[in-house]
Design a protein around this nucleic acid. Structure first.
Ligand SMILES: [Zn+2]
Length: 63
DNA sequence: GATGCCGGGTC
DNA sequence: GACCCGGCATC
């Protein structure tokens, strides 16, 4: 797991083999992860990606 | 208490 | 399809 996934953009690309859902593997401990919500905060929810707004798996920072 | 997410809900 | 929260796993 934890492959060098330098995507951080283009969720349209083939992001297979690099997702906790598709791989079945685990995710980063939220000690390191910094996705839309933690980065921008509830005060700037309009800057989050759509998936984060809906409390779904982040599509910008693919983890 | 908070992030991050699925399951479930509204329109 | 676009939009969102309750409750959970996890820290
Ligand atoms: Zn996001």
């Amino acid at each position: 797991e934890r492959l060098h996934q330098h995507q951080a953009q283009s969720p349209k690309s083939h992001l297979y083999s690099v997702s906790p859902k598709t791989t079945g593997f685990h995710k980063k401990p939220r000690s390191e992860v910094r996705k839309c919500r933690k980065v921008y905060g509830m005060e700037n929810r309009d800057q989050w990606c759509t998936q984060c707004k809906w409390k779904k798996a982040c599509s910008r920072f693919v983890d």
